[in-house]
Nucleic acid binder design. Structure first.
Lengths: 122, 122
DNA sequence: CAATCATATGAATACATGCTCATATGTTAT
DNA sequence: ATAACATATGAGCATGTATTCATATGATTG
């Protein structure tokens, strides 16, 4: 309990509302958690990956079909599928030479729906 | 109907499962919508912005307090607040020299909750 | 009006990332 | 085995982006 606290004071290095900052700090999840959350959303933050996930909402697909659907290089699709897999958003199943990808998450659909709701002009 | 379709055929430029691709294509939202969705998630895909949003879940805060909370430059915070505002995720209110930011969205909380649920090892 | 303070903004920089090209891996068929 | 095919992977490149520094804007106070 120093003498430099109170409701309103100087800013810059100090804080205007010390109580608020303390309260907020208490309620915040740990840094690692927030970092992981941002990492997850980073995965959603790319058109190609969003398209792939949306496609997999409808059906399991092989790399070849996804490539044709998106009109991209097979390599590009494969790279992005790896990202999605590392984030545990999709899983794959081998059948001969083909690899079939499908969703591996129950939350993505709801996250996307909420995102779409926001986009639809609020 | 031509003679190059069917269930299984060559890949590369053609498609293995033409029916699946067609079905998926039909069910996919338009390109612009998918782009906007990715743009929205891109905003969530940064630790600083995630922290700011989490902070605002608890309380309205001025730039100064957010800066102190995050231990960043005031400039960095201001830049990110602009991004959040452009995405219509936060709104601001002026009071003298201070600017108070608060949430401007009902979906973010649920999106974050779903994201956290995914992270918590499924 | 001059000084101080809170916030915003522009330029520069450092770093991340998505795509392509080339090639590797692994599977099926001849 | 060899060829054809589906997918994965690594390097390189081009683009995007988060931060910092310096400074501008706008408000309050003396």
């Amino acid at each position: 309990m120093g003498d430099e606290q109170g409701s309103i004071e100087r800013c810059s290095f100090n804080v205007v509302h010390k109580d608020v900052v303390e309260l907020v700090k208490k309620k915040m999840p740990g840094d690692e958690c927030l970092f992981d959350l941002a990492e997850l959303f980073k995965v959603f933050g790319d058109t190609t990956r969003v398209k792939i996930l949306f496609a997999l909402f409808t059906a399991e697909m092989c790399v070849c079909d996804i490539t044709a659907l998106l009109g991209l290089t097979q390599s590009a699709v494969s790279h992005q599928l790896r990202v999605l897999k590392q984030a545990r958003l999709v899983k794959c199943r081998k059948e001969g030479k083909m690899v079939y990808y499908s969703l591996d998450d129950e939350h993505v659909k709801q996250i996307f729906d909420q995102g779409l709701a926001h986009i639809s002009h609020k």
